[in-house]
């Protein structure tokens, strides 16, 4: 997550540098903090940002009327807010697309995948055929299936269970697949 954020952070930063003025500093920093979940802003970049302004220190400051400065400040504030909003939207869009991708994967994923992971020759009953009308129902069934039989559910096969019973039972016998399930003896009839 952090890695992702940093990459998207770099181009945004350049963009900001071009359009800002002195008044904007606090606002910018704030919006930046709000935008990025990574807690540490880059101090080096912030310093280099300030340096061209410092070079004109020996001259007296130009006279700027209060109205003009206020107007320009408001304008740049507005611009900054716009940028922030746009960035937010971009991020949102990106997250949404990822979410959709996950959802798609989720829908396609479990059935085919489970068939591979389950050992033995049996059918699992909670999942019905694909013909189910509603995909919502399918998603719900897949959820159930993945919770009960999915990865990490630590399942064995009925065959193994029965064989284990034969091995440990009072009457010992071979594994189920080797037990003769023929017609048995009629002698006690």
């Amino acid at each position: 997550m952090q890695h992702n954020n940093n990459i998207s952070g770099v181009p945004l930063f350049f963009h900001r540098r071009r359009c800002c003025s002195v008044f904007l500093f606090p606002a910018l920093n704030q919006s930046r903090r709000r935008l990025m979940t990574s807690p540490a802003p880059k101090p080096a970049a912030a310093e280099s940002f300030g340096s061209p302004l410092d070079s004109s220190d020996d001259e007296a400051p130009e006279e700027v009327t209060f109205q003009a400065s206020k107007a320009s400040a408001l304008q740049s504030l507005k611009r900054a807010l716009d940028t922030a909003r746009r960035e937010k939207e971009l991020l949102k869009e990106k997250r949404r697309r990822r979410q959709e991708l996950f959802q798609e994967q989720k829908v396609e994923f479990p059935v085919s995948w489970l068939v591979v992971s389950l050992k033995g020759n049996y059918t699992v009953q909670t999942v019905k055929e694909r013909a189910l009308a509603s995909s919502q129902q399918q998603v719900a069934l897949d959820f159930l299936q993945s919770r009960l039989y999915g990865p990490g559910s630590c399942r064995t096969t009925s065959n193994e269970l029965l064989s284990l019973q034969n091995k440990r039972g009072r009457k010992k016998s071979a594994a189920v697949q080797f037990v003769n399930k023929g017609w048995g003896e009629f002698s006690n009839m």
């Binding site: 059918t123 009953q125 909670t126 399942r155 009925s158």
Partner: peptide
């Protein structure tokens, strides 16, 4: 025969 066709039990 029914038991051997049941879905997976826990291991």
């Amino acid at each position: 025969d029914i038991a051997s066709q049941l879905p997976a039990p826990v291991r």
